[in-house]
Simulated assay, not measured.
Amino acid sequence: MEYTAYISKAEDFFNIFTEKYNFMGESTGIQHKYRVAEEYGSGCMDRYSLKNGLEICMINLCLKKAIQFQFKTSLPVFEVVYCTQGRVLRNEQGMGELLLNEGNMVIYVRGKYEGFIEIPANMNIKCISIAAYNPFSGIFRYDPDGCDEGYGRADIKSLDDLMRPHPICPWLKAPFSEMQGCTFSGIAKLMYLECKAMEIISFALEKKIISREKTEIAVMLRKTDIEKINLARQIIHENITDPLSVDELSERVKLNSCKLKSGFKHLYGNTIFGYLKDIRLEKARELLDAGHDMNINEIVNEVGYSNTGHFARAFREKYGVNPKDYRLRT
């Protein structure tokens, strides 16, 4: 990697994509859109620059060519990143390689540091980043007199165990999903996104942002194994109404079931059937958002559930609201 970006302010990061990779930038006040250049693929990054150094970036893209660059920065940042689809590789000095897979999230608390970022090709990437720049003079400045920039530093120091990718708690997916599905416009949208971002950050400070599952032994995967697991994921998407069993999936992709299960969990942060459940519910949410004439029972059948009650419980567990109430809010 010959290209190194020097980041001294938030927009420097996004300038990498416009100057080096020909993304097309559009700005309207505090809202910015960076469209992927046709030569690199499709999609965009939506960035919202809010008050007190708070920034939200929603990434939704699919690249024809991988993007990889080194960076150096001395800009203090507190950042929460959640990957809802695909994966992103980040390597930082002192932390090593951080692979953020689908269904995982990570917290970055940094001052002066350097590393590199890689966004892979031929994969749909969806991530949400909530970043607070210069946080101790911005969003964490909550001392009674408004003059102590050290307020909250002890809370930040306690987050060391969260600074590696972890599976997100199911109930915390709701505010992220609500951010992605927000239909408000103008100042109402900005206020809504800011409230959701602060809700997520507050959970981070309370160390409730990850599921407390046992750390699993690292899975050794060859390139061919990863290709077969990616194929299994594609087959799952194509058969959500009539899914294959693990053994059938294993036979289809020519990978033993033990490695398929452990490798799938390693790459995507979820079990095979947990992943199937998530994409069924996500499709149901999209159908509810679409506002067409399908009733709840039709949506239940469309996403592969055979029991409306089971579907409603699963939807409420994932999004924190019943399907009928969710439809009324959209």
Rank of each mutant, 00 (worst) to 15 (best):
Y6N: 04
Y21N: 08
M24G: 05
I30S: 13
K33C: 08
Y34H: 00
C44K: 11
S49P: 01
C62M: 07
Q70F: 09
K72T: 05
T73C: 10
S74L: 01
V80D: 03
V81S: 13
T84C: 04
Q93Y: 13
G94I: 03
G96H: 06
N104P: 02
M105E: 12
I107N: 11
A121D: 00
K126R: 14
N134I: 06
F140Q: 00
R141V: 06
Y142R: 15
D148S: 11
D148V: 00
K157G: 07
M163D: 01
M163I: 13
P165S: 13
I168D: 00
C169G: 05
K173Q: 14
F176S: 03
S177M: 13
Q180V: 11
A188D: 08
Y192E: 01
Y192S: 12
C195M: 02
I201F: 07
F203E: 07
A204L: 04
A204M: 13
S211K: 06
R212K: 14
T215G: 01
I217L: 15
V219I: 06
I226R: 13
K228W: 01
D242Q: 13
S245N: 04
S250D: 04
E251F: 08
N256E: 07
H266L: 02
Y268G: 01
G274C: 04
L287R: 12
L288M: 04
G304K: 10
G309A: 14
G309T: 15
F311E: 08
F315E: 00
V321H: 07
Y326I: 05
